[in-house]
């Protein structure tokens, strides 16, 4: 057998085998490799390469090495899921680098990190001033996770004490021009409703690339023909504006009327309407 044919057969075999064995190891994200994962992957790679290039004298030896280096990690991962002690050894533990805003030098030493490393990792997290950090942890994958001090954290609706609408995820009802019946049915809608809505927007169904329906039945469209401007749904804004107008009208009538009993009715209406606007405003803001 010529040398090149030998290498071809070995390479093909090694390729198929590694593909299969790596699948056995399970789905672990390559972006989150621990040190142990890295070593395993390198050994498997080198063994497979040596095997396929005929650097190993004994083919069986190469196969055994490959099998051991894939099956052992697979086994250890299974054990790691079951026992915390194994997990700590295999995947490493996180190291607290900054606690209560103070850098822990001995922990830094333990993780073999220089102060420059720490600062550069913090900068990667958009933290340029270490005094902004309340708590930072070195993950087993070598990444630093940062918790900023309360006053440096980005504002959320909660910190601003704002009431925001509770919105469920929109359903995609048309993809690439094809109507998806399942999401439509999940929202309790049907094709007829969709056609009516598309007609309202003045769009032919076959021209729609993506259509999404939000929780209140508003439809958002993207067309194949990008020259056409699709109107954004305004029903929610319109309802809110109408309510506000009616509330102002009622207050106006209450001021204008000369009969006290009519004034009372209008005043009550204006009061109820402003309560309604307060409660429903967050839901109607898009």
């Amino acid at each position: 057998m010529p040398e090149w044919l030998n290498i071809l057969i070995r390479s093909a075999g090694a390729f198929a085998l590694t593909l299969f064995l790596v699948r056995l190891m399970g789905k672990r994200q390559t972006s989150r490799l621990t040190f142990f994962d890295l070593v395993t992957v390198i050994v498997i790679g080198v063994t497979a390469a040596a095997f396929s290039l005929n650097l190993v004298k004994n083919p069986a030896g190469g196969l055994i090495a490959l099998a051991v280096w894939t099956l052992f990690p697979a086994l250890i991962y299974v054990l790691a899921i079951k026992y915390k002690a194994v997990r700590d050894i295999v995947q490493g533990r996180e190291t607290v680098l900054i606690n209560h805003g103070k850098v822990l030098e001995d922990k830094l030493m333990e993780a073999r990190m220089t102060p420059e490393d720490l600062l550069s990792q913090l900068r990667k997290k958009n933290v340029f001033n270490f005094a902004d950090v309340e708590f930072a942890v070195l993950e087993p994958t070598g990444e630093v996770s940062v918790l900023l001090r309360k006053e440096k954290q980005p504002v959320t609706a909660k910190t601003l004490n704002m009431d925001v609408g509770r919105e469920s995820a929109p359903q995609t009802v048309i993809l690439d021009g094809i109507i998806m019946d399942e999401p439509l049915a999940a929202m309790g809608l049907n094709r007829k409703w969709l056609h009516t809505e598309l007609e309202k927007a003045g769009v032919a169904p076959e021209n729609v690339f993506i259509a999404q329906v939000d929780s209140t039945g508003q439809i958002y469209l993207d067309l194949f023909d990008d020259a056409i401007q699709v109107p954004r749904p305004k029903t929610k804004d319109l309802v809110l504006a109408t309510l506000k107008k009616c509330q102002a009208d009622c207050e106006l009538y209450a001021l204008g009327t000369q009969r006290p009993e009519a004034g009372e009715v209008y005043g009550r209406c204006a009061g109820t309407l402003s309560e309604v606007i307060d409660e429903i405003g967050p839901l109607l803001k898009s």
Binding site: G165, S215, G217
Partner: peptide, 25 residues
Amino acid sequence: QTLAGLKGAQAALEAFASIEENPEA
């Protein structure tokens, strides 16, 4: 006129409520 506007808004709210899936909303 105000009454007509309110009726429209009320109908829209009912339509939203019938489609909305989040029980709280």
